[in-house]
Each structure stands twice: as structure tokens, then as C-alpha cells.
Design a protein around this nucleic acid. Structure first.
Lengths: 152, 152
DNA sequence: CCCAATAAAATTGCACCCAATGTAATATAG
DNA sequence: CTATATTACATTGGGTGCAATTTTATTGGG
């Protein structure tokens, strides 16, 4: 058997173990949670980032692209095509602010408002999926928020 | 001012507030942490997922695509093109297992081994960035692991 | 031995995600 | 008032991420 490497040619640094890295745990958990939302969002024909945009619009009715980006920590490279898809489906409108033509105001259209009713039950259902958490999720969420504040 | 909606045409369900959703916090934190790794990985010309693959190979020397997928919770649709890029650069080799031609064994090449030296300092540096966490990261990481176990 | 079932990758297509760049509008300095 | 800087989006390009499908290889039953 011809190995490319001579055995013992380097020592593995145990600090590099995948399981010990918080960043990987967050990365993996993020994808798992997004996947867990899918059965709830597929009936509404929404992706998770699209759902987040709608959450903000249901709350604020109208926001600029910049506002959305600040809430979601996403930039126009991500938001512009996503919003175009939502507009294509008639869920939101995109129009330049007459008072500052640089801004684009995103507004809910009736079809987007209507989705709110169908999304009302989602938080309760998703909470149920990891409700039996050992320490409860409230504490975890607070810790995550603090980390985000420090990194954002 | 002509609003598309009549004022008060629907009540916002406060359960849908973005800030109260653990999934969003994890999603946002994941992207922030990945971004925090960038100054450490750019000098090695690696993306974060590529770095994760190399972490596993530095530890195990050789793994199948399936093995990598099980550790990282990624499928071949993501891993195959990523591994082709690493192979293109001469960091790893991809060869069918002679005993089971369905499997592809990913092996470190000397250039991939050499990167290990240059990556050795990364965990210490990244830990430093969020070291002053209130409750410490060890507890958070354990909670994340438990959630992953339940959802994977 | 033959064939259906299973398994591992690869491929395809769509939707993020973000760095870098471009463009038009607004704000500011002098 | 005008040149410059800044701001808000849009665009482009590369790299994921994943569902769905296809291809090739192995396994198990008859």
C-alpha cells in the first residue's frame, strides 16, 4: 500500500478537532433549524430567508432595503434578487422613495398580507420541535444575542 | 398618501417578532462567525466549508465523501464540487475505493498537509475573538450539541 | 446465475450569501 | 454653486447548500 504520506509525518493538533469548535456547532445547527422549518414553509412556497423578510414586513408594513439589511444582517447582493422574486409573485412592491430616489421601499401587497394568516401558527409549531430543551431555549437565545451584538 | 392597505386591516401577531426567534439568532450568528474566520482563512485561500473538510482530513488523513458528509451534515451535492476545487489545487486526491467502486476516498496530498502548520494558530485566535463571553462558550457549545443531536 | 433493491456519488437546477464593482442620487466642503 | 464624498441599490462572479434525478456498483433473494 503506497501512502502519499510517510506515517507520522505530522502531528494532528487536537485543538483543531471539529467537535470542539463552537463555530461549527452554530453552522450545523443553523442548517438543521432551517431544514426543520421547511415542512412549515413549503406549503406557503417560501424559503427561510424569504420568511424572515415577511416577518419584518408583517411587523412594520413597509421598510427600505437598507432597513431589511440592518435587521437581517444581509446586504443588497442577497436582498435585491430575493425581493424581486417576492415582487414577481405579487407579495410585495418595490418602489423608489420619492423623497430620496436612492432608497427602495418594500411594501406588503394584499397577497403578502394574506400570508400572515397562514403563518400565524408557525412559531408555536416550531417551538414545539425543540421545546423539551434541557435548560430551555430562552437562555440560549440570550447568549446568542450577546454574541451577535459583539460580532455585528 | 395612498397606502395599499387600509390601516389596521390586520393585527401583527407578536409571536412572529424576529428577535424572539431562536432560529434567526442561530442563522445570523452562523454567518457572523463564518465572517469572523475570514481574516484567518483568506491567507490560506480557503473558504470556511473547505477549512472544515481539511480539519477532518488533518485528523483522519483519509475519509470517504460519505464520511465527510456524516461529520459535516452535508451531502454530495455540496461536497463533490468543493472537493473537486481542493483537488484542482493539489491539496487532496480523489480516488475510487478499489474494494468498493461506489466510494470515493479523499486523501491529503503534501500541499494539504503543509497547510496544517499554517492553520495551527487559528483556533486560539478565533477563541480570542469571543473569549470574554459572559457564561463562557463551553456551556453554549454543549447546548448546541444537544440541539444538533435531537435534530440531526 | 439473474434481477430487484440498495447504496454512493455525480449531476442539475434553484436560491442564497457575500466581496467587489458600478451607478445614480444626495449631502457636504469650500 | 460646484467639485467631491458619501449613500443606497444593482450587478457580477464564485462558492456554497440542498432537493431531485441519474449513473454506476454492490448486495440479496430466488
Amino acid at each position: 500500500m503506497s501512502s502519499v504520506l510517510t506515517a507520522g509525518s505530522f502531528e494532528f493538533d487536537p485543538q483543531l478537532k471539529l467537535e470542539e469548535q463552537t463555530c461549527f456547532q452554530v453552522y450545523a445547527l443553523s442548517r438543521l433549524l432551517t431544514k426543520a422549518y421547511q415542512p412549515l414553509l413549503t406549503p406557503l412556497d417560501l424559503t427561510y430567508p424569504q420568511y424572515l423578510v415577511l416577518l419584518l414586513l408583517w411587523e412594520h408594513r413597509e421598510l427600505t432595503v437598507k432597513d431589511l439589511g440592518q435587521h437581517l444582517l444581509l446586504d443588497s447582493g442577497t436582498l435585491t434578487p430575493l425581493l424581486k422574486r417576492l415582487a414577481q409573485r405579487g407579495l410585495v412592491s418595490r418602489q423608489r422613495d420619492p423623497h430620496d430616489e436612492r432608497s427602495v421601499r418594500i411594501t406588503l401587497l394584499p397577497a403578502g398580507v394574506a400570508l400572515h394568516e397562514r403563518a400565524r401558527h408557525i412559531p408555536a409549531q416550531s417551538d414545539q420541535q425543540y421545546a423539551k430543551s434541557p435548560a430551555g431555549l430562552a437562555g440560549l437565545r440570550q447568549e446568542l444575542k450577546q454574541l451577535i451584538r459583539r460580532l455585528a
